[in-house]
Design a binder for these strands. Sequence first.
DNA 1: CTATGTAGGACTGGAATTGTCTGATTTTTG
DNA 2: CAAAAATCAGACAATTCCAGTCCTACATAG
Lengths: 154, 154
Amino acid sequence: MLRLTKKADYGLMALKYLAEQASGSAHSAKDIAEAYHIPPQLLAKILQTLAKAGLLVSHAGTNGGYALARPATEITAFEVIRAIDGPLFITSCITIHGACDLTSTCTIKEPLRKVNDSIKDLLSGIHIADLVDADGDQAGTGAPVGGGLVTIAI
Amino acid sequence: MLRLTKKADYGLMALKYLAEQASGSAHSAKDIAEAYHIPPQLLAKILQTLAKAGLLVSHAGTNGGYALARPATEITAFEVIRAIDGPLFITSCITIHGACDLTSTCTIKEPLRKVNDSIKDLLSGIHIADLVDADGDQAGTGAPVGGGLVTIAI
DNA sequence: CTATGTAGGACTGGAATTGTCTGATTTTTG
DNA sequence: CAAAAATCAGACAATTCCAGTCCTACATAG
């Protein structure tokens, strides 16, 4: 199904949220979770992960929270996904150790590795700032809530 | 983790196998499974799925089996993956119905939809015949079994 | 008629994802 | 100083999904 985990989804949404807000101020996990109706404790863990990965800076204590560690134009979707979901492997043949049950018999490793790289490049070309812009586009279509659903027929 | 299922992996390997063999003859699921050390019954189901999707033609009975329904140059990796794993959605936000729990709040649908399309294009540009060629490349490197492992450090 | 195959459904075990709970630590504020 | 508001961290439960197996029915060549 080649899909992102919900965590990665949530992470991207949170980063986008932070990118839209006034840059300096910190926003708590709770605030962001409420804005998007995400389980607060789950988002908290995700933000912790992103902070540990250096994409966010955290500040504990009252009025604390998270803020982008870098400008939104310099954080890529790939970094976010990698931080949350771990290394990106399109096939189970290709693991971090390079091990493969079918080492001698699996013959599609190499071609799929190229696809893997291509997807990586694709995601590396998308920045948090791009998500913010795209949102503006969507609003510009004037599609009403509930009618603006995205349906993909592949 | 953005990965293909093993089934899709197996499916691609099987199609590659069929592409390498003499075009006319049919090969049974069992034969292919043995060649790659894949669980035979699992591969059987995968091949059935591919046959139903029109990518393979099947022939029951003794000396029956499967053969490519089209030339290997005209079957794309995308078709195979789609047939096996179903529609390709990068996010859980984007479903076949367009429904999304976070309809009004999820704001990253549209940008990710473009990524989705890009990946689709990417996979659509890869044909079974390309896999066969790539195998030749790999063999050409002369890397010994066990040393030719593919390790990706992202 | 029998061996060899495909067709297709049901089912199980295990792994991964998702979400929850609890406690500790940091920092601001009154 | 004490309380409140946060992050930090680990363990844990629930659920979903994938991988693989089993069983039966049907088709065809010899």
